[in-house]
Computed example of a mutant assay.
Amino acid sequence: MRELRAEHLTKRFGKTTALDDVTLSFEYGKIHALLGRNGAGKTTLLGVASNRLIPTSGQALVDGEPVTDNPRALAKVFCTGDVRMIPPSMCVDDLVGHMGRFHEGFDAKRALRLAKMFELDVKAKTGALSTGYRSICQLVMALSLDVDYLLLDEPVLGLDAAHRDLFYRLLMEDYLERGRAVVVATHLIEEVATLVERVAIIDEGRLLMEASADELRTSGYSVSGRAEDVRAYCEGLEVLGIDELGSLAMAYVQGEPVRERLTDRLDVAPMSLQKLFVELTGKGE
């Protein structure tokens, strides 16, 4: 199976452990979500996978080959996110011109066309771009590359609603056309929930869960009603959390509803990926 795989990855920065023995895989031909709060380790994981960072232990593999200092493996991977790699005095159109020298298969005409769609001024210096347009600049370059594994680190940072919608539409069109692996690292879960096929959740450098999006959606549910009824229903079950407001409560439970405990005073509903993420990590955004 073709995949980008992390095997027992650990990365420390001094006394801080950014990744703690993480093993997971991103299968070729699927859109993956890498979910985590700010500081959870998403950027570090993608940095190791693209050889921007050297792991303390473990390794990242592309189609079975280590990525560390391996040009053949790295030619299959592109990661956004590190704007420091682009000279701030370089204009966007110059960046487009240079990309083809470093990345085989870069489509300059497509990049200019996408820049126009996003209303990105190609004569502007990259260092003078706003946060949103710096993100757009990186997305334009990424979506113009012919690579097998596209890693997008917080791709919609600073984008307004219209540009986010445009990006998600272009991303899906690109995926349907090329069929490559796409990894979207984000904390904006609901925006990608309908796009992704596989989900990995990390927190404080550790992998909490890895499954298909459908498995995660059916892995839990919510039950609501009067607080005393909800607490009685939840007794002995695997409860992720309970929200209470006055005499009412809503509990988030893993597994399937226990039909014999349900009464007409309780309501059951599926749990969203967003809520599952919040309850698993134990903290809201």
Rank of each mutant, 00 (worst) to 15 (best):
A73Y: 06
R231P: 00
H8F: 00
L150E: 11
M1D: 08
T56Q: 10
L171P: 10
D82Q: 14
M90A: 13
L45C: 05
G47A: 05
V239C: 07
L216G: 03
A40F: 06
E260C: 02
G14R: 11
G58F: 12
N38F: 07
M250C: 15
S89Y: 14
A162D: 13
K11E: 01
F102T: 04
Y168I: 11
E119G: 01
P257F: 05
L208R: 08
E260W: 02
S57F: 01
I31M: 15
E260T: 12
D20N: 15
L9P: 05
D153Q: 06
F167D: 07
G241Q: 09
E235T: 12
N51P: 08
V239K: 09
A227Q: 14
S224M: 11
M90F: 09
R84M: 04
D267T: 15
S135Q: 06
Y221R: 07
V230I: 03
L74P: 08
D229M: 02
R226E: 14
S247A: 14
F118V: 05
E173C: 02
H187F: 03
M209R: 15
E7K: 14
G81S: 03
G132L: 02
G41F: 05
L266P: 04
E154Q: 07
F118E: 10
G241L: 04
Y175N: 05
Y133I: 03
R231L: 13
K15Q: 14
